[in-house]
Every structure is written in structure tokens, then in C-alpha cells.
């Protein structure tokens, strides 16, 4: 479980997400692929936080250095923000899909590409 292996997993998920976004016809599958890409980024952030070593780790005497040690968890904080934003985004995306479906009775992207009113 080295850093390269986890980053390889993250890259694979991201690439699969890219394929999913560009090659499906239903909006909901596109949203799901975007969620996959978000998860790939979160995996990378956590992996970096776990495997890379901040320089001021060993001295934990003063509060300033304790704060520096805590900053090793910046990747985790990133992960929290990304998860929250992605959840909000998928909720709003689905609300838009509902509104679109109410008007057009279909969710095929090629049909919705016509921006007529």
C-alpha cells in the first residue's frame, strides 16, 4: 500500500469518471460519473495526507508546533469540504433533472441540447 498504488487507484477512478461523463446519454449517469471523479480526488487527498511527511513533525512541545502537526491533516479537511460540496451539487443537479423532466418528458442529453424555450 504505497503512495504510488493509491494514486494509481485515484487515477483509474478519475479516468473511468471521464469516460462516463462523455459517453452516456442519460443525465443521471453523467452525474454519477461526476461523483466518481470527486471520490477519486478525495482518495488522492487522503493518500497525500497519510504518506507525505511534514518537516516539523517530531517536535511537539509548543502550541505552534502542535498546530503544525495538525496541519498534516489538511488532506482530511479537504476531503470533508469536497464531500460536502459534492453532496450539495448532486442534490441540486437532480433537482434540475427533475425540473427538466417535468418540461420535456425525457432525460436524453441530445434532446435537451436544443435550448429552445
Amino acid at each position: 500500500m504505497t503512495l504510488e498504488n493509491v494514486l494509481l487507484l485515484s487515477a483509474a477512478l478519475f479516468s473511468i469518471g471521464i469516460y462516463g461523463v462523455m459517453s452516456r446519454r442519460s443525465i443521471i449517469t453523467t452525474l454519477m460519473s461526476i461523483e466518481l471523479m470527486f471520490n477519486a480526488v478525495v482518495v488522492a487527498a487522503i493518500a497525500f495526507s497519510r504518506f507525505t511527511l511534514p518537516a516539523s513533525l517530531a517536535n511537539v512541545e509548543s502550541p505552534v508546533q502542535a498546530a503544525a502537526v495538525r496541519l498534516a491533516l489538511t488532506g482530511h479537511v479537504f476531503a470533508v469540504f469536497i464531500i460536502a460540496v459534492a453532496a450539495a451539487e448532486v442534490a441540486l443537479g437532480l433537482a434540475i433533472v427533475f425540473a427538466l423532466y417535468r418540461v420535456r418528458e425525457t432525460t436524453e442529453i441530445t434532446d435537451a441540447a436544443t435550448m429552445k424555450n
Binding site: L7, S15, I18, Y19, M22, S23, R25, I28
Partner: peptide, 30 residues
């Protein structure tokens, strides 16, 4: 609730281009 496209989600026509893009991205990241 939406009871989606009756035939399921069929892949769009840009499948080859999408696969190429994904493979290139994977290669670059790796």
C-alpha cells in the same frame, strides 16, 4: 421517480473519443 429512458441508458456516439480521452488521462496521471 423519473422512470428513465425506457431502453436504459445507451452509450452515445462519442464512445471511442471518450475512451481515448480516459486512457490518455490515465496514462498521464500514472
Amino acid at each position: 421517480i423519473i422512470a428513465d429512458v425506457p431502453g436504459g441508458s445507451r452509450p452515445a456516439r462519442g464512445r471511442i473519443a471518450a475512451a481515448t480521452a480516459a486512457a490518455l488521462m490515465m496514462a498521464a496521471l500514472a
